[in-house]
Computed example of a mutant assay.
Amino acid sequence: MNFHEVRFPAGLSFGSTGGPERRTEIVTLNSGYEERNSPWAHARRRYDAGVAMRSTDDLEAVIAFFEARRGRLFGFRWKDWTDFKSCLASREPVFADQEIAVGDSVSSDIALCKTYRSGETTYCRAISKPVQGTVSVGVGGAEVFEGEHYDVNYATGVISFYEAPPEAALVTAGFAFDVPVRFDTDRLEMSMASFAAGSVPSVPVVEVRV
């Protein structure tokens, strides 16, 4: 896959705008009622990195990153400052944050996920780009440790246990994560005169499925 395991400068993504996008198809019936359906099981996130640029050095950093990715050709990691942890933004991730599986004594590979709750409704989002060194895991309420009990594939978000978690044991995890994205343009239009006058270029970024 055309993906570089490198993160867009976090200082520049901090001031960006964007968030999750859903696709909903709505048909209004003659009675006035609606039928609603979504062809997407998961949201797709979009961002604009241009609004975060504050100096000519920022411009050069974005151009260098864009060129290294060959425009839209190669994907990369993006830190979404509004949603990048398994826990609340004010807390640090711990192994009990997210329930990711129930052991069956057979499955040793378990993918990370984050569950969003509102009332009785939940949505489970696959996490494919955890941040190196931030993953902690628990089995049956007790913490287990990377390198002793499991390995983490930081390019896919899959935890590989040395021994499959026992039957009915709850598997939990805490982590920080990035969003896999690519540039949504093959052309950057930048003007030093416009930038000096307070105009910032648009640098669209869109999430990719990996």
Rank of each mutant, 00 (worst) to 15 (best):
A96W: 14
E189H: 10
A164H: 04
D184S: 14
H4G: 08
R117V: 15
P204V: 04
A41W: 10
N153Q: 02
H149Q: 14
M192T: 14
C87E: 10
P93Q: 09
V139S: 02
A111V: 04
C87I: 13
E92D: 15
A173R: 08
A61P: 03
T121F: 10
R70H: 13
V205N: 10
A10C: 05
E146I: 07
P165W: 01
G32P: 15
N37K: 13
D184R: 04
V158F: 03
R70P: 02
R22H: 12
V205S: 07
E67T: 14
K79E: 06
T24I: 14
E189F: 04
T122M: 09
D48C: 00
T185R: 09
T115L: 07
D58S: 04
I159D: 06
V152F: 13
Y47D: 00
Q98H: 09
D186V: 09
E143S: 13
P20L: 03
V6D: 12
N37L: 04
P165Q: 02
S194F: 09
T24A: 12
G18L: 05
P180E: 12
G103Q: 02
R77Y: 06
V27G: 01
G119S: 07
K114D: 02
V206I: 09
M1H: 14
I159W: 06
Y123L: 14
V181F: 02
D178Y: 11
S90P: 01
P20Q: 05
M53R: 03
F195M: 07
S31T: 14
G19T: 03
L112R: 05
V203G: 03
K85Q: 12
S16P: 02
V106E: 10
A10R: 08
F183V: 06
K79Q: 13
M190H: 02
A197Q: 11
G140W: 00
T17C: 04
P166N: 03
V102R: 03
I26P: 06
V200D: 05
G103N: 01
T17S: 12
S86P: 06
F183H: 05
G141F: 11
E143V: 15
P130M: 11
F14N: 04
T56I: 12
F177L: 08
S107V: 00
P39H: 11
A41F: 08
D104T: 04
F74M: 05
R77K: 14
A49T: 00
V210Y: 02
S13K: 01
S160N: 13
N30K: 14
G141P: 07
L88P: 06
D57G: 06
E99G: 00
C124T: 15
F74H: 12
M190R: 00
V152K: 09
A64T: 15
D184F: 08
W81T: 01
V179Q: 07
F65Q: 02
D104P: 06
A126T: 09
R54S: 10
Y123H: 15
R209K: 09
R125E: 15
R54T: 02
N2A: 15
V210M: 08
P130I: 10
M190D: 00
V137W: 04
R45K: 10
E143H: 07
F84R: 10
Y116I: 14
S90I: 08
I127P: 04
V179D: 01
V102S: 01
M1R: 13
A89C: 01
S107E: 03
W40K: 09
R22Y: 13
D104V: 05
I63C: 02
D80P: 01
